[in-house]
């Protein structure tokens, strides 16, 4: 029983990390129609920046904020100076993000080397937590908590603020949004930075579970894609539900059929694509 309870918590923790990653991907895709394939690389870059920051100031939360900010700046520059130059060339934009993700991955390998670098768990969360007769690693509970808090914050941002209203309008109908005077250009940059920041901070927060290692980007990107395909592009709720479904399917897949865990990821994706090509909560067909 203890084993399955732990697997459930692991699923939730992975789901939480995937939400941090996929929420930004989904919003960028929904608003700008850019499939930002750097997203996995930004997650990894965040983790590595976190490693370096923690060597100076060993505080995970500070490192997550710093990495989020650094990756946000990087994302902003990418959006403004490259992606915007080829606006309207949808395929070109995807390919550029792909090219940049190769550059980031190789630069990380060059800078931080090929060996996995563990990120220490904050001392306060190293103690296991006892709930009833089960013992849980505290940090994984904290990750789930962070994901839920971020989800609520993003929900409030989307539903209660002017920025959120503009993003929603842009996702629903980009042309109409610019016609009614929403500053689409600034909005794009903001959302791109926000998505990048979430990915970068997510990399650090995932660090104590996943570590920072070459290939982290390629491991995370397909999971994020599946989250967005399941949940539907442009939908925060979709990213949330999709992330936890994917977290569960993957974690239990690894536990039950370790060889074929990836194949099991097919199943929910194919079910959703067959019956609802736009995803569970998608606003439009991608």
């Amino acid at each position: 029983m203890q084993y399955w309870a732990i697997q459930t918590l692991n699923s939730l923790a992975l789901g939480g990390l995937l939400f941090l990653l996929a929420a930004g991907f989904s919003l960028i895709f929904g608003l700008m129609r850019i499939a930002n394939l750097t997203h996995g690389a930004l997650f990894m870059l965040g983790a590595y920046i976190g490693v370096s920051v923690m060597r100076q100031w060993p505080n995970l939360w500070f490192a997550a904020l710093a990495a989020g900010a650094a990756v946000a700046i990087f994302g902003g520059l990418l959006e403004r100076f490259i992606l915007r130059q080829i606006g309207g060339n949808v395929l070109g934009q995807v390919l550029v993000t792909l090219g940049v993700s190769f550059i980031i991955a190789d630069a990380c390998l060059l800078t931080w080397g090929g060996d996995p670098i563990p990120i220490p768990t904050p001392p306060l969360l190293q103690m296991p937590v006892r709930i009833g007769s089960f013992i849980f690693p505290a940090y994984r509970l904290a990750v789930v908590g962070i994901a839920v808090v971020v989800a609520i914050a993003l929900y409030l941002l989307m539903e209660r603020t002017r920025l959120g209203a503009m993003i929603r309008a842009g996702v629903d109908d980009p042309q109409m949004a610019s016609a009614v005077g929403i500053p689409v250009s600034r909005l794009f940059s903001t959302v791109f930075c926000l998505g990048a920041a979430l990915a970068g901070a997510g990399g650090v927060i995932g660090g104590p579970i996943l570590s920072a290692y070459p290939g982290l980007d390629a491991d995370m990107l397909p999971l994020a894609l599946i989250v967005v395909i399941l949940g539907g592009a442009g939908s925060l709720l979709g990213a949330f539900v999709g992330a936890f479904i994917t977290g569960f399917v993957y974690t239990f897949g690894v536990a039950l059929l370790p060889d074929l865990a990836y194949v099991i990821l097919f199943l929910p994706m194919i079910l959703v694509i067959a019956f609802r090509p736009r995803g569970l909560f998608g606003k439009f067909a991608a």
Partner: peptide, 28 residues
């Protein structure tokens, strides 16, 4: 599966499908 969508959706589906195989090749 992939032709349930066109454009970027098609691109993401083809990518996801092949990445699943890639991951499986490492683990199986």
């Amino acid at each position: 599966v992939a032709l349930r969508a066109t454009g970027l959706g098609f691109l993401m589906l083809t990518l996801a499908l092949s990445q699943v195989l890639w991951g499986t090749a490492y683990r199986w």
